[in-house]
Design a protein around this nucleic acid. Sequence first.
DNA 1: AATCAATACTTGACGAAGTTAATTAATACT
DNA 2: AGTATTAATTAACTTCGTCAAGTATTGATT
Lengths: 384, 384
Amino acid sequence: MSPADDYTALASSPASAAILTALVTSGPQSRVSLARKLGLSSAAVTKSARPLIDAGYLSELDATERTGPGAGRPASPLTVRADREFFVGVKLTGDELIGVVCDLTAKIRAVAHRPLPSAAVDDVLAEITALTGELLDGPDDYRGRTRRLGLAVSGDVDRASGLVRYSPFLRWHNVLLGKLAAAATGLVVTVENDVKALTTAEHWFGEGAGADSFALVTVGQGIGCGLVVNGRPVSGSHGVAGEIGHLSVDAAGPDCHCGGRGCVEAIAGTSAIVAAAGTGGIDDAVARARAGDPTVTAVFARAGEAIGLGIAAVANLVGPAHIVVSGEGLSAYDLFEPHIRAGFERQAFGAAADCPLSIRPLPFEEWARGAAAVSIQSRLVPLG
Amino acid sequence: MSPADDYTALASSPASAAILTALVTSGPQSRVSLARKLGLSSAAVTKSARPLIDAGYLSELDATERTGPGAGRPASPLTVRADREFFVGVKLTGDELIGVVCDLTAKIRAVAHRPLPSAAVDDVLAEITALTGELLDGPDDYRGRTRRLGLAVSGDVDRASGLVRYSPFLRWHNVLLGKLAAAATGLVVTVENDVKALTTAEHWFGEGAGADSFALVTVGQGIGCGLVVNGRPVSGSHGVAGEIGHLSVDAAGPDCHCGGRGCVEAIAGTSAIVAAAGTGGIDDAVARARAGDPTVTAVFARAGEAIGLGIAAVANLVGPAHIVVSGEGLSAYDLFEPHIRAGFERQAFGAAADCPLSIRPLPFEEWARGAAAVSIQSRLVPLG
DNA sequence: AATCAATACTTGACGAAGTTAATTAATACT
DNA sequence: AGTATTAATTAACTTCGTCAAGTATTGATT
């Protein structure tokens, strides 16, 4: 395999893309079960898998697990060789870089943080390069088996061109981050919106693995949502999608900076909670709520319910198979969770209420893992 | 072409399906422009189009329109031969059947109505057969060129198997309508949910033609919504999708029969309007509002705004390229329209507000046309 | 132990559906 | 008339799948 192949996806045909996707999202499987699941002949699986095995990306598992009713040749399931290649993922925030090294199954192998004293493009590129070096040239030497870097940025990002159209926290406009970072690091770079990246990670490697439709809701400063429908991410024709934070759930609710009224974010965003609780900061609000202050407890209850209503709206409109709720705001998980569920259950229509809801806090490295997941995906299959 | 071919789709390959879809949704085009748009070689278009021309489904237009800068061989655009085949569409309501004959471009050629004195399955089948006969064996003799019948039913429908799982107005449970109607009429039958059928019609033959994502909102007894995302209809993993009527937009709003509170439908559904206006019926309410009764005018204003908020939720979450608002409720179009727009514009986030909104009343035959559109689609391309 | 049935996988011939490159067709401009 | 330009077709080839036949590896039966 020539170095130039690093720039193209590993899968050269629809079949091999489907095989890689199924193995990554659903774990080791025999060729026959892959064929059944993907609607292919087993001959096609054999043929498509061969070059992937030869290149070291797949391998055969020992035929320990018997599948059938006993008789017959045992299957030798195919599996992804996790340590065949490594990927760097970096999440950019306004004041910090969070970096991880992941293997092919998006398992985090190394973590590093780095403050970001300046948001000037050149400074950020220098810090990305330094962080990448720190991760790759550290005690475990990943350098030789790492060709790709994923970046996750909040804001308006064009993944195909690696362009950051607008990023509020970095105050960037139209920065060709992909090309610049590729030049600075010598790696193949993908750039994606942070929520979409996290959605990809959960859809491929997390609880949403293999689901045909899936939603990820992030709770924090803002309330965001990534959507996967019919197996494909939703981007929105006008560049807007998943704006769950600006659904209006209360006609008498507070005005929102977006011009709307009663937005979920204007009730349940971090600053809205702080304002409503009349406390100094979110940590203070959490502490007072945990101490039992009824005013502040009510603020969290109202916020949780608003989020639940927003999630119910997602369930009613697109009907995802699974919804994961997460984000830095869920460090106060215990204060939110029952009210999110209450709001959801009240407003989810009919069978939409059957949609399983996973509500859990999210380690901050997960955002960087999301960036790596996009990079892994781009390595395995064309586009996304 | 043997009779058995009537059961399979006309398109035998992805390329021919793409060509038919493009010609139906975007009108006559040269082979070269089709190739560019679809990412195919022009040789592939030539080859795929040939059998469709031979079978009489496509034909070449006279090269009247010049395309290029003047020089060069003029294009002879391909076009769908609308009268090659006809399709019957029937919409089933609780007390009436509405039937149409459409040509291949979904243009309505004939219309017929028929009361439905009984909702017993056998009686409905007899009426469908009679209506179909009336349409096909009438003054224009469509019988010889019609092989397919589309049925549209409100409720829970499995298109693939032609099963009506549950239909509230007909009080049906698990009726294999597709097989039964095929046996009764001798036609190839498709069965689809009425809102989805109407969405298909607008997405293929109406204002949403060719859009990658599209939403149709119906206003009437209930408030419904059909969604197309990434070019494919959204069905919902748990069978629920597009339930815009049960988004909660007012925390202090009325309780809804669904168990929720402040649902769009509980504010803007026909019976909610009648109840809030304190009038005898919807016609009465419309009359009083048109006469300037401030109470009733306010009821319509509030209803319109609630619908607008629901539409904004769709725009914020999935970002369709175009939204069509229609339905029998929009016979009172003038009372709703400005308030729908006001609600939408207030709550649409950022670029979502750029989404064009078409608000217009809908002739009742359009529902039957929707049923025919599904049938046409099933004739042209596999699945949907 | 030998055979058989069951299941997994591989192989090679074939076919469907696309590609590229060369050719033919039809027009406008000089 | 000759040439540039664009459209469409044709023929040779490539790719990627299927099908059908065979091989591989096990448990059960005789």
